[in-house]
């Protein structure tokens, strides 16, 4: 018998196909002002929201915010990037599909367009998000995602961080040190 068979034999009491599964026993909390909640949650996660009122001026706002654009990779335009370029990347621009008000997370699905290494190698991240896509909680968030076609995708909430030394919060562990979300 293979290990698989042995394990499954031991699990034989739990092989039945479930007819129903428990649902949510409650209504998820309401976030009456999604934008306000999102901005506050993102701040708590160490990120910053920047409201862009004029979409025409988005790129300008990104440039101004990060003071210069040397070693910038914009995944909305640049198709393929080599590792050397990514290693020195000061700023990477990503588009997020939607955001979550309760925790400031955004859903990023880089597909094959951009290697997922860039998300963590880039020193700073500028993320472009349509404010109309905000959802209140993770329940609505997962209801939106179609997993077909996804290889690797993530919810990202603020810059990378750690508190492993004496519980002191340090922003910038392995991934981005700065993260700003430009809300259109």
């Amino acid at each position: 018998m293979t290990s698989r068979e042995k394990i499954l034999t031991r699990l034989s009491g739990s092989m039945s196909t479930p007819e129903t599964k428990p649902g949510l026993g409650f209504e998820p909390s309401d976030h009456p002002d999604l934008l306000e909640s999102f901005v506050a949650s993102l701040k708590a996660a160490g990120g910053e929201a920047i409201l862009v009122e004029d979409p025409e001026r988005l790129d300008e706002r990104i440039r101004d915010t990060f003071l210069g654009t040397e070693s910038l990779i914009d995944t909305r335009r640049d198709d393929t990037v080599d590792l050397e370029t990514m290693k020195g990347c000061r700023l990477a621009v990503f588009e997020a599909a939607f955001g979550v008000a309760e925790n400031g997370a955004v859903w990023i699905d880089p597909r094959e367009r951009s290697p997922h290494a860039l998300l963590t190698l880039a020193e700073n991240l500028a993320i472009v998000l349509d404010r109309r896509t905000l959802v209140p909680t993770m329940h609505e968030a997962y209801a939106r995602i179609d997993f077909d076609g996804i290889s690797y995708a993530l919810f990202l909430s603020g810059p990378s961080k750690t508190a492993d030394i004496e519980q002191a919060l340090v922003i910038g562990a392995h991934g981005a040190i700065g993260l700003k979300i430009f809300l259109l």
Partner: peptide, 18 residues
Amino acid sequence: ATGQAITTYTSHFRRPKP
């Protein structure tokens, strides 16, 4: 775990990379 609303990275793996 830590009092954060969500972990910074909540990463989903569904397929090997090409």
